[in-house]
Simulated scan of single mutants.
Amino acid sequence: MANNKQVILAVNGGSSSLKTAVFDSDTLEELFTAKAKGLNAEKAVLEIKDANGKSILEKEDQLDSRQAAEAIIQWLKDAALTITAIGHRVVHGGLQHRVPEQISASLLADLEALYFVDPEHLPAEAELIRQFEKAFPKARQVACFDTFFHRDLPEVARNFPIPEKYAEHGLIRFGFHGLSYEYIWETLQQEIAWLDDKKLVTAHLGSGASMTAVAGGKSVDTTMGFSPAGGLVMGNRTGDLDPGVLLYLLKNENLAVADLEELLNKNSGLKAIAGNSDVEALLKSRNRSKKAAAGLEHFCYSARKFIAALAAAMGGIDLLVFTGGIAENSPDIRQLICNGLEFMGIEIDERANEKDTVISATQSRVEVRVIKTNEERMIAKHVKAILQES
């Protein structure tokens, strides 16, 4: 189909998914979405939709990230859209790269040096950049970093209690899922008066999960630190871990660094506890499987504990927001997490939790909301800002 409209393409590669969206370059109206989920599994689903949510193309196949990208690229070429710029979500850019910037050979080299910090995302993200750059050589390529939102973390939340020289080498707490947190804050600004005076905890719960305390639009503290493996118990990742455990595994179990990396990022978390990292599957089997029940208990216990800790970091909490694939789609998980937080003034209305965006009970001192995140829109917004600067 012929189409001369100038557009911005947002590319958001995850550990098991690839989400892209096409936006009008001038208005940032979302025109199309193309999403692939279940990558590297037995069956992945790729679906392309128009602005009205109507499915244009749906495909089920065994796909990895590269194959999914090729399918999306082919559709984009067939659509004959004029892609002026492509924005890429990049999880980690180290100390030198946090502000959105145009992609260069030197940036890609810097990212390659960080592969060991985030082996789940960075290599695949760099490959996606190369794929789309090759497919659309005239489009400007822009990196949008997940760490940008956390760039002003207070020193007490940013630094580890280790010798200062290591911080100078980049060993600090960066925080992640920043594009999602940025989107949530901007969405709330349109709906809540005096938001700058509110103390907010946002829980981004997906296969990777984190939480952030936000006050005045700035990240005050966050659960993920130096890498996306820290913080909450996750699908395949450990979350926070006693350093002595790592020393034990290296010394007593004779694990090589590569084995340890595999263990921490791919074979831990819910997968280790319950034998399955799929929360939806665990919810279905929890009444007949002790392992499934234990996995969910670990996940929700971890979440409850961090909500309380982040509230303590701000000296209180006015608003709790659930976002991310798991939190957006599972009333059960939201209820299980909030059970036991009544002492903080957090109470859920069961009926509202099934269908509404505001799910707190009337008597709840803390407002609880569910907001669908849109990292792709934030990517497009950052790209447009860079285009306007130049």
Rank of each mutant, 00 (worst) to 15 (best):
I172Y: 07
L171C: 13
W194T: 07
S180N: 06
I172P: 02
I162L: 13
W194L: 11
E182G: 08
K165Q: 14
E186L: 14
S207Q: 01
H204P: 03
K165A: 14
D196R: 10
Q189D: 08
L188D: 13
G208W: 05
G170P: 09
H177C: 00
K199T: 02
S180L: 04
G175S: 09
F174L: 09
G178F: 06
G170T: 12
M211W: 07
Q189S: 14
H169Q: 15
I172M: 08
E168I: 01
S210V: 03
V201K: 06
G175Q: 10
G175T: 07
G178H: 05
D196L: 04
F174C: 08
Y183T: 04
E191D: 15
A203H: 00
M211Q: 13
T187K: 14
F174N: 09
F174Y: 15
S180F: 03
W194D: 14
S210R: 01
W185K: 02
L205T: 00
T202G: 06
I162H: 06
D196V: 05
F176V: 04
W194Q: 13
R173N: 14
I162D: 03
L171R: 05
T202V: 14
V201T: 03
G208C: 09
I172N: 10
K165T: 10
I192N: 13
G175F: 08
G175M: 08
Y181A: 03
Q189E: 15
F176R: 02
Y166A: 07
G178E: 09
A193C: 01
A167L: 06
M211E: 09
G206C: 03
E164H: 11
A209W: 05
D197L: 08
E168K: 15
A203F: 00
I162A: 03
L200C: 04
F176K: 02
S207L: 01
H169A: 15
W185S: 08
V201C: 07
L179G: 01
I184D: 11
L195W: 11
L195R: 12
E191P: 11
I162F: 08
G178M: 05
P163V: 10
G178Q: 06
P161M: 08
P163Y: 11
T202Q: 01
S207N: 14
P163G: 09
K165I: 14
H177A: 02
S207T: 00
G208A: 07
I172D: 00
Y181R: 04
Q189R: 14
E191Y: 13
W194K: 11
E186I: 03
W194E: 12
G170C: 12
Q190H: 15
G208Y: 09
K165N: 13
I172E: 10
S210I: 02
L200R: 01
G208F: 06
S207F: 00
F176A: 01
E164R: 12
